[in-house]
Simulated scan of single mutants.
Amino acid sequence: MNAPAESGTAVPRYCAQPPQTQPVLRPDLNPNRSRAILLVRAKWINGTVLHYAFLDQGGDIGGPEQLDEVRHAFQAWKALGIGLEFQEVADPGDSEIRVLFRESEGSASYVGRDNLGIATNEPTMTFGWDLTTPYGKATALHEIGHVFGFAHEHQNPFAGIVWNEEKVYADLAGPPNNWPHEVTFNNILRKLSQNEVTGSTWDPDSIMEYSFGPGLIVRPEAYRGGIPETLGLSATDKERVLQWYPPLVAQPARLQPFQSAPVQLATGGQANFEIIPPETRSYQVGTFGNSDVVLALFEETADGLRYVTADDDSGQDRNGRLDVKLVKDHRYVARARLYSSWGNGSIALMYW
């Protein structure tokens, strides 16, 4: 996302997304399994409560109104009916998302579950310009899109964009961005693998799309004159976020100890089960079958569901297992998001 160009230049300021982490997969792994893992790896377990904290009160960008725009942006995504929840907390140590306002830092966010690898005293999202303008409001929506696991749309391999690379590097190396070569490559010129992209089309109206001036794009010819500014969520943005984070059912099915529950899911699908243990002791919660799964456990508290533990068995020939102490009559929710299955495709979940 970008801010208005500074006086005397046609180049806007852009979001400088940090490089995403890449999973290390066995070279002999079935290509279909690899593709599924790459497609799902950045996405959160649906139903997760993402806690966000502000590291300052607007920094050198402005005052409390900057914080309000971030709150409004979270609410705009939530209003679509997605299954993720958002909760503001005062202590950054209790948050997954930490917001800093600093002009020198620019605007950026880590992508999806990469946020979990950042130290709790460090920001995961920065804003480098005023969020109260139309451009700024769109920037807040854009950075939260990164939090959900979405990349820059112009890097979609199905866009078919051919760049005037020399001009792109030259324009971004100058003010107001002053980007080094590797930042420009990572945020504009690098094409995503087809394995990382949902669907097979490019959405130039996406909130995850930059605007570009004339002369940077060689093809498609329709965009030689540039890509106009996007100030809101497109129809495709709304469709994609609901695909990954659909509304949750009011009450997940109850899982009984020592009784396996079959799970029928497509790639990226998720199953949710309620657990109310009959006694306080150590339990195992696990999946069975030939599958790559992220398995997570949440406990109901006065403040809502809180994350307890998780296991990711993707790319490994084993099943997910959680070893955890559960308390009698407390309510827990186990959530399993599927990367892929193979063999007969039958999967089950059980606790014992």
Rank of each mutant, 00 (worst) to 15 (best):
K191C: 09
L192Q: 08
L192V: 08
L192I: 07
S193L: 07
Q194E: 15
Q194R: 15
V197E: 03
V197P: 10
T201Y: 03
T201D: 13
W202Y: 14
D203A: 05
D203T: 08
D205V: 11
D205N: 11
M208D: 10
M208Y: 04
E209V: 03
Y210T: 14
S211P: 02
G213S: 08
P214W: 03
P214S: 10
G215L: 06
G215S: 02
G215D: 06
L216F: 07
L216D: 09
V218E: 14
V218N: 12
R219G: 15
P220K: 15
P220L: 15
P220N: 13
E221Y: 10
A222K: 14
A222G: 14
Y223F: 14
G225V: 11
G226Y: 07
T230R: 11
L231K: 08
G232L: 02
G232W: 04
L233V: 13
A235P: 03
A235W: 10
T236Q: 11
T236M: 14
D237I: 13
K238Y: 01
E239H: 05
E239T: 14
E239I: 04
V241K: 00
V241G: 01
L242Q: 05
L242A: 09
W244H: 11
W244A: 10
Y245F: 13
Y245E: 06
P247N: 02
L248S: 09
L248G: 01
V249W: 12
P252I: 00
P252T: 13
P252K: 01
A253Y: 08
R254C: 09
R254V: 13
L255I: 15
Q256D: 07
P257Y: 02
F258V: 12
F258R: 05
F258S: 09
Q259G: 04
Q259F: 03
A261H: 10
A261T: 13
P262Q: 15
P262C: 05
V263G: 06
V263F: 04
V263W: 00
V263Y: 02
Q264L: 01
Q264W: 03
Q264N: 06
L265T: 03
A266P: 00
A266G: 09
T267K: 01
T267W: 03
G268M: 13
G269Y: 01
G269E: 05
A271S: 11
A271E: 06
N272S: 07
F273A: 05
E274I: 09
E274L: 15
I276Q: 10
I276M: 07
P278G: 09
E279Y: 01
S282N: 13
Y283A: 01
Y283T: 12
Y283G: 03
Q284D: 03
Q284W: 00
Q284E: 06
Q284Y: 00
G286P: 00
G286K: 00
T287Y: 06
F288V: 11
F288A: 15
G289Q: 11
G289R: 02
G289T: 10
N290K: 00
N290I: 00
S291Q: 11
S291N: 12
L295C: 04
A296C: 06
L297F: 00
F298N: 07
F298C: 05
E300F: 04
T301N: 14
T301F: 08
L305M: 12
L305C: 03
R306K: 12
Y307D: 07
T309C: 06
T309Y: 01
A310F: 09
A310H: 14
D311W: 06
S314T: 14
S314H: 00
D317G: 07
R318M: 07
G320E: 15
G320V: 08
